[in-house]
Design a protein around this nucleic acid. Sequence first.
DNA 1: ACTTTAATTTAACATATGTTATGTATTTGT
DNA 2: ACAAATACATAACATATGTTAAATTAAAGT
Lengths: 248, 248
Amino acid sequence: MIGPTTNQAMGQRPPTGPLDGMAGPLSRRLGVHAPLSGDDLAALSRLAVRETVVVAHTDLVRQGEPAENAFLVVEGIAASYVQRASGARQILALLLPGDLCDPDLAHLEHWDHGIATLSHCRIARVPRAALEELIATRPAVALALRRTKLEAEARSRAWLAALGIGHATERLLRLFREIIDRMHALGLADRNEGPLPLTQVDMAECIGTSTVHVNRVLQELRRSGMVELKGSRLRLLDRAGLDTLAGE
Amino acid sequence: MIGPTTNQAMGQRPPTGPLDGMAGPLSRRLGVHAPLSGDDLAALSRLAVRETVVVAHTDLVRQGEPAENAFLVVEGIAASYVQRASGARQILALLLPGDLCDPDLAHLEHWDHGIATLSHCRIARVPRAALEELIATRPAVALALRRTKLEAEARSRAWLAALGIGHATERLLRLFREIIDRMHALGLADRNEGPLPLTQVDMAECIGTSTVHVNRVLQELRRSGMVELKGSRLRLLDRAGLDTLAGE
DNA sequence: ACTTTAATTTAACATATGTTATGTATTTGT
DNA sequence: ACAAATACATAACATATGTTAAATTAAAGT
């Protein structure tokens, strides 16, 4: 590893030009759910502004703050989370490239959850007004956004069920599978191998256990030849076995 | 307890006339979130059809079935849930009187979760077409529905976080508090006392533990004078202590 | 009223996971 | 290249929760 930046976590993309990639992940993602016209795409490309680089484990919005604008993950992995006064955190959902942190929140006076980067990220802002205008004037975009949201809700249900039903091993495997699968769908990972720029603390906060236990489970998964994880690169070595262990 | 029917679980309502209460809970609920005109209310009252009485623990929709119409809980408590092949269940959310099981599901080909009654219920059907027409033609109703959904999503986040972070005692207390508070908001319970027509199996599936453990925790809560629970009637005896134990 | 079924309670024991602590590897910054 | 900070690994022990099973109580159906 040689480069001066730490982007290896997120993989292959070289330093980018001024506008490259800003609207890319968003329109690529939305385009999956509804056919978008050239005008739609152009409007989307103007939506995200003020792209910045944010280091890992930085809050974008803290719980309790007023809701102002939405965030778009251009590169890296971010997450929404809930935090208790005790300091304990639970991650609610992962935000991957092209994901918009919940845009429907306009009606809440204050955020009941926070948004933070997990890895190094490139983050763009999406002004609420612009987003709502786009929804009002471009039906195809509105439809794509709705379907994207339905997908996120389905993931959220599965996430909640796994927390309630499964053991830590199952939950960790589900987490790995979700990240690889979603990254693969974005063209950012192979089918069974990809970047995993999370710390074990992050994983623990995803699956609702302690760091120590994440490590324990991970060692066992390595020993049994289920996964390989070195330097934020993950390989799933036995997909069939994984799907069995992780439940349907 | 004398009456021939077992409706005491849900409390005070005597046998009802033909249309009484059908639209009641729905419009009462929606009216909290946006001002509704007389026309709005009239349209809402025509929305729910085919009201039926359903005994406890009956599936309304099973996972994997095609999505046809939405359900409105008129009386009683229902729930959405996920079920594994192993038989293990996790309840995702409670549906109380006036709650509509997620109406946005029209776009999913198949339900990724089921809906079942927990207590005896009165359930009405809501045809998707009618619902969508109402949303398209009545902005106030559409707004109220959106806000109601935002509220449900916030509850879902809190539910997920509790599963990941809290111990069983905390989760059970949160469950009790949620039911009493929501019932109270509907005028169906006092501030600290109300119906709790769930079995301990239901509670276990809500908070993600075993039945035996629910019973253990419940006994301890009774011994410490935190709650009283007899014959599906719940009293919270120490609200301040509860709020401490349950976390913010 | 009676029978059957479902729900609750409790015990004894097995196990998954939490906690605290300490040492080692990796990164990161300079 | 070095120092400082993070992240990872592992151990020993405490505890919350799962499991199985059996006895008791309450509810539902006829």
